[in-house]
């Protein structure tokens, strides 16, 4: 019984390890796609990255842009899929991390030469969130100090102008 349990645990761990590595190996970096367009043209690829900006709805389908840190690419997907993304990356937000599977085109005939991925499946890997700004005390202190200094110089300048006018 003890041996069976051991074997099952090892098998379970092996399955998890291989499943993880095989899915990671399938992910292609966007820069790799761009640098090897001929190789990937017309093939199904998987990318993973942050949804940025916003979804641009074009009726039944939408455009989104995904950036994986190496580069960004346009994704053509069904609007219902685009609606699954709740957070897009910008100054105040970290966008949802999405995994996109679809056909890569280096010169899409449908979209007059776009480099794109026509999405067949979208998975939200990690939810994005609102990013709260961190203000440091040094920055607040420096801004106040320098602003006071600028006011002081402006006052001296105004006095000099006034003095100059009264002399003339």
């Amino acid at each position: 019984m003890h041996n069976i349990c051991k074997t099952l645990i090892i098998m379970f761990l092996l399955i998890i390890a291989f499943a993880g590595s095989s899915s990671a190996a399938n992910i292609t970096k966007i820069d790799n796609l761009i640098n090897n367009m001929e190789q990937f043209d017309g093939k199904v690829v998987n990318i993973e990255g942050e949804a940025i900006g916003e979804a641009m709805n074009r009726g039944r389908y939408s455009w989104i842009n995904v950036n994986d840190g190496t580069n960004a690419i346009g994704i053509w997907l069904e609007s219902s899929d685009a609606a699954k993304i709740t957070s897009f990356g910008d100054y105040k937000h970290i966008g949802d991390t999405v995994r996109i599977s679809g056909v890569f085109s280096k010169n899409s005939l449908k979209h007059s030469g776009e480099v794109e991925i026509a999405c067949s499946s979208l998975t939200i890997v990690q939810k994005g969130h609102f990013e709260k700004e961190q203000l440091t005390h040094i920055k607040i202190f420096s801004a106040t100090l320098l602003f006071c200094l600028a006011l002081m110089f402006s006052y001296i300048y105004a006095r000099a102008i006034q003095k100059n006018k009264s002399n003339n």
Partner: peptide, 15 residues
């Protein structure tokens, strides 16, 4: 944060 950045930059520029 950008607000403070621009305040610092304006102050340095005016001075």
């Amino acid at each position: 944060n950008p607000l403070l950045d621009f305040l610092i930059s304006i102050s340095i520029s005016v001075t």
